[in-house]
Design a protein around this nucleic acid. Structure first.
Lengths: 103, 103
DNA sequence: GGAAAATATATCAAAAAAAAAATAATTTGT
DNA sequence: ACAAATTATTTTTTTTTTGATATATTTTCC
């Protein structure tokens, strides 16, 4: 958000702050959230790139469609391990995964 | 291993192959092992850099000494999540973690 | 060489994640 | 608008990871 917009919003009585602030996350928690979010997105994009359904994707990595749905959202119940293994299973390299995580 | 050494070993009747081959790992499994290994090493090095014991380190990240010992070995029973959270907790950045993982 | 500190290993209960399966909701194609 | 396909959500069960604790082993330092 640029400072013009911020000024206008604040002038109009809005409180303006980051999501992290709002959710009251420590920097570590925030980094973790970001990593998970980006891995989730990478997973989604990989799958779309392959033009296959969550069902087909799930079969490929020997899991179930519901878990793919959760993984692509970065749901709390999905581990980093699961996301990373999934990405590897659809052809992502260590480097690609690292790049996604570092964003 | 250079090809000279390999030749000498094979001439002497040794089978020469990679650890991955020996353990019969798929490329994905191998990548996973490598990531875990490197995160484990990063964790160890961070701690040594801080010149603190596993005990002190454990207190800092709210876990126990035995789990730090396991994490620094990259034991199977330690999740990626745990290693990444631990690294973040001792000041590693997303980028540092990514770099370690990509090695 | 021996005590103290640090690290490694083992066990068990509790918590978290995964698989499995059913089904609801949404999207896509006709 | 409707049927089929896809994705999202929920619940239950099983497996894995974690924390807690005790203790064995190794390292450090005097």
């Amino acid at each position: 958000m640029n400072s013009e917009k911020r000024k206008r919003l604040e002038a109009a009585g809005w409180k303006v702050g980051s999501v992290d602030e709002f959710l009251d996350l420590t920097p570590e928690e925030s980094a973790m959230v970001a990593m998970r979010f980006n891995l989730a997105k990478a997973l989604y994009e990989r799958r779309r790139g392959l033009r296959i359904s969550q069902e087909a994707f799930a079969r490929r990595i020997k899991t179930t469609q519901p878990r793919i749905a959760l993984a692509e959202k970065g749901a709390d119940s999905v581990s980093l391990d699961f996301m990373v293994r999934s990405l590897l299973a659809v052809g992502a390299s260590k480097k690609e995964i690292a790049v996604a995580m570092a964003r």
